[in-house]
């Protein structure tokens, strides 16, 4: 009889998926994980939660702006933004590195960078998780660093980073570690002051134009999600120090931006 069936039993789910979809080539070579704490000069705060701490003296200049100058500009800028009650010592610069740029519940912040002026230094604390299980500890750590009374300073953080942290906390059925904190998103004053003169107001542009700072061999932010995915999938941790460095630059530039913004305000642009 005519066409003979190739098989007589209905195929299994896996076979059917494989038939209908082209299977992605997986190069599942497991990377050997070097000691992450050693290559990042960090230490384990909790299992799978790494802390990388740096203290940057205020004589450090980001581009042509020294941090002590930025720090002394803070009161003027805070006032111009209507945040008089915020004490410059309580400002917490805040930036995350995430598994995706689209937002939504399926995006996780796997690196959270926090920084504050602490006497003669800018104290930078970066938290990195190596498993999803450590996320809860990460959120607790954020809460203890950005304690009550802190004033968050971010770049586009009101739209992206803070809601992301809130979402993650809710998924873990916990409290939002940033809930109730004052939050200054520098994207908005930057837009007001420089929109007319700059091609765009991305942080990278602001650094170059307002701080005269250009990054050397920086890992572009758009590549961060793939670094995370490869780390989760294959254990490839080699690019992680570069992500941390990228995140540190973001934090320092955030602090540095206080000065040109205050200047712009003083000269009446803002």
């Amino acid at each position: 009889m005519a066409p003979q069936p190739a098989a007589t039993l209905p195929p299994t789910l896996a076979e059917r998926i494989a038939r209908t979809r082209r299977r992605a080539l997986s190069d599942a070579r497991a990377h050997r994980t070097p000691d992450l704490a050693r290559i990042t000069s960090g230490r384990w705060l909790a299992p799978q939660l790494l802390l990388v701490e740096r203290r940057l003296p205020l004589c450090h200049a980001q581009g042509h702006v020294r941090l002590d100058l930025a720090r002394s500009s803070a009161p003027c800028l805070l006032e111009s933004l209507g945040a008089h009650t915020c004490d410059p010592e309580r400002m917490v610069f805040f930036d995350t590195e995430t598994s995706g740029l689209a937002g939504g519940t399926g995006t996780i912040a796997f690196i959270v960078g926090l920084a504050r002026f602490d006497r003669e230094v800018l104290r930078i604390r970066q938290l990195l998780i190596t498993t999803f299980a450590a996320e809860s500890a990460l959120l607790d750590e954020i809460r203890s660093f950005a304690s009550a009374g802190s004033c968050l300073v971010s770049y586009n953080g009101k739209s992206f980073d803070a809601p992301l942290i809130r979402t993650r906390a809710r998924l873990l059925r916990g409290q939002d570690p940033l809930g109730g904190l004052e939050h200054i998103d520098l994207l908005h004053p930057v837009r007001r002051a420089f929109r007319r003169d700059w091609p765009d107001c991305r942080l990278r542009t602001a650094e170059e134009r307002a701080l005269g700072f250009s990054r050397v061999d920086d890992l572009p932010g758009s590549q961060v999600p793939e670094v995370f995915r490869r780390f989760m999938r294959f254990g490839d941790s080699a690019p992680l120090p570069r992500v941390l460095e990228h995140n540190r630059h973001d934090l320092v530039s955030l602090a540095g931006l206080l000065y040109p913004l205050a200047e712009a305000h003083r000269s009446g642009d803002a």
């Binding site: 998926i17 997986s26 598994s99 995706g100 740029l101 995915r229 999938r233």
Partner: peptide, 25 residues
């Protein structure tokens, strides 16, 4: 189905949970 997605590198199994690890919506 989840094993298949893990093979594609879309989700990641950790303990009893399957997490989304891709940069997409």
């Amino acid at each position: 189905a989840l094993d298949y997605l893990a093979g594609e590198g879309v989700v990641h199994r950790e303990g009893a949970n399957w997490h989304w690890i891709t940069d997409s919506y």
